[in-house]
Design a protein around this nucleic acid. Structure first.
Lengths: 379, 379
DNA sequence: TAAGTTTGTGAATCTCATA
DNA sequence: ATATGAGATTCACAAACTT
């Protein structure tokens, strides 16, 4: 396997096989119809990157309402309906096969998905000979909660990044990523908000597409694994986020999209897009996640053992730490903040400074344990 | 499908099929030999949870045969990539099949892996009928950097949590998780340090095991998806992190481990582990677990007099409590839930939190009266 | 205008006991 | 089996609205 970062190496690389001239490709066009058919119209080994956001094959039950009674607008589109894993797998194998064919030997593939489909996609692309370079976790800052309290909040999606094979070369702009990440190596978990607000495309007040991806995500993908002038194909173009970001970053793009409506929205969007300027670059840079600590994390990590007694400064109340990081004081229980609030009858309470514990005879605020934890956790 | 949180329901649930008495199981033992063989010695539908940390690197040991019967030399890596996946898949299917068999109908499975193997595992467990509930990202605070700068820092591993099937019940301690996370829903991305420092087991100054998992990870898994006394099986026991945390949390455990050395290390470790006190083990209960109270019972008991006026937060509607615990608002009548639902035109309504009443000049939710009633009725 | 409050919404495999 | 009714359940952010 290998990495290519300089334009020089890249040029040498491209000269090797019979290169397909870019002019032979439908650059800057949205091909209509089925993506497998559309990709068949492209020559072998002709593109640098495929970015794919295929249907996730969600299998939703009935309607879902929020606790306030409002209705959740779910993805119920026909294009996300498959009758079985077998049918979904066949579909996946077919489009991945075409993607592999049109990619140059040193090209790469990105696919985004959720737990509903990503394990099918990952296994199949490995079967086809793709070589996984990283799996990337898109950590959403603002995911939809789990309204019924039945599972963990589904707060991330997964991207797979793969080369043509174990020994294949690929483009990785290491230094660009390091710069983007405040001079630290870019990690496999990316903290990026979901696409809403002004960026979210609307038609007649309705969202134009149910699953529009944030531009920041595509920005990072293209900045990390393509260089200027590279050709990027998106087989599931939707509203054209890939095309818009590619145009902004000076990459060539080709989209495939079955639905007339989405093609129209995408075309309009990309026509308005302008090449990148410096100020835009700064805006796209992600902020580092704030080191917020839950009290429960300290208990899990053994910094405070369940059963430990904690008390307020004047020892008016004594409570016991339980396994889940809640406190128990007589019949009353709650979080460090909530129980402190209830006991005092106060409107709010900062449990970190309200509660104390004894450590080898010395009385300390809970906040002291939090500081120790943060020190231990930050490499 | 469904979630179970109360001990009461749980007991009823267990009584349904011919229950395997716990005494028939090798609780607190580390079974030697191949995990598939070891699991074969356990009865059907007998355990509550399987936690598995399978090998990624095909160190399967012993003789291996291709599906066509031809022999593969595992030690000299005498296979191509296709063989390698095939063999790994067969191995995975075999141990997952045994795991599924020994799990109770409402039991659950956890598997941890990295991008090398988790896509194989995920696809196969779906094929076997397991139903993925979440994929969880263990986000490492202190991962190994990518020294050569060729990829993104591989800063996470993935855990899959699955029930026996789409309609199967499963245990999820929602409120314990919410408490552990400072009163916010626990998300699918968990920030936990890697296992090092004093927790990392050493023998003669060397790491005892190359992939020892942090206890905080198992702590959260067991706290979230088991209750006290549940039986947890770990087919790839290693140095026994699962056993140690299970013992601490008052869960029963069974391990399988092929290597004598690891069995020795694990046994010594677990012998030293002490169970937590009863009180420390308690976790925040869900309201689902609380005894159900009929509104009519409050009225009967005089906690709310017939004729009392109740109203929603904004006083858009005012209703009168009737002797049978129903409400009347103009011509409309119904239960506290049903009337609230009808008046709002909402799909559902929790009358306990929707309706309010005045008690000595203070506005309170009906739920406050329920809490008073529960306190009075207990003991 | 500025500041505070209310409302809307996002790739979601989202209940359970009883009749 | 399937229908019914009780009742448990939400976080971050932005836009709209009010004071």
């Amino acid at each position: 396997m290998g990495v290519v970062e300089t334009t020089k190496q890249r040029t040498a690389r491209k000269a090797k096989p019979v290169a397909v001239p870019k002019e032979a490709l439908p650059l800057g066009q949205i091909l209509s119809g089925d993506c497998i058919e559309a990709m068949r119209s492209l020559p072998d080994a002709s593109v640098d990157l495929v970015f794919a956001d295929p249907p996730y094959n969600l299998q939703l039950g009935g309607d879902l309402n929020r606790p306030d009674g409002s209705h959740v607008d779910a993805v119920t589109n026909d294009w996300d309906q498959f009758d079985s894993f077998k049918i979904y797998d066949d579909f996946t194998r077919n489009w991945l096969t075409e993607a592999k064919r049109i990619l140059k030997p040193d090209g790469a593939l990105w696919v985004i998905g959720s737990y509903h489909n990503i394990y099918r996609v990952g296994a199949i692309l490995q079967d086809l000979g793709f070589w996984i370079l990283n799996d990337i976790v898109w950590r959403k800052t603002n995911p939809m909660p789990n309204f019924r309290g039945t599972r963990f909040t589904n707060a991330h999606e997964t991207l797979l990044w793969a080369s043509q094979g174990e020994k294949a070369k690929y483009q990785f702009n290491y230094n660009a990523m390091k710069t983007l990440n405040d001079e630290l190596q870019m990690r496999s978990d990316w903290v990026i908000p979901i696409c809403n607000g002004g960026e979210r495309l609307k038609e007649n007040g309705q969202k134009a597409h149910p699953t529009q991806k944030p531009e920041a995500l595509l920005y990072r993908v293209l900045l990390a694994t393509t260089e200027k002038g590279d050709v990027v194909v998106d087989p599931f173009f939707g509203t054209g986020t890939t095309g818009a970001v590619a145009k902004r970053l000076g990459r060539e793009w080709i989209g495939c999209e079955r639905e007339d409506f989405y093609r129209g929205v995408a075309q309009k969007r990309i026509d308005k897009e302008l090449p990148l300027d410096e100020s835009a670059l700064k805006i796209m840079q992600s902020k580092r996640a704030a080191p917020k600590v839950a009290f429960g994390a300290l208990v899990e990590a053994g910094f405070l053992k369940p059963g430990t007694e904690v008390f307020d400064k004047k020892r008016r109340w004594v409570a016991t730490v339980r396994a889940d990081g809640s406190l128990e004081c007589g019949k009353q229980t709650g979080s460090i903040h909530g129980l402190g609030k209830d006991l005092q009858g106060a409107p709010s309470c900062n449990g970190w400074t309200f509660w104390h514990y004894e450590d080898e005879g010395v009385v300390k605020q809970l906040d002291a344990a939090r500081q120790l934890y943060l020190l231990a956790v930050e490499d």
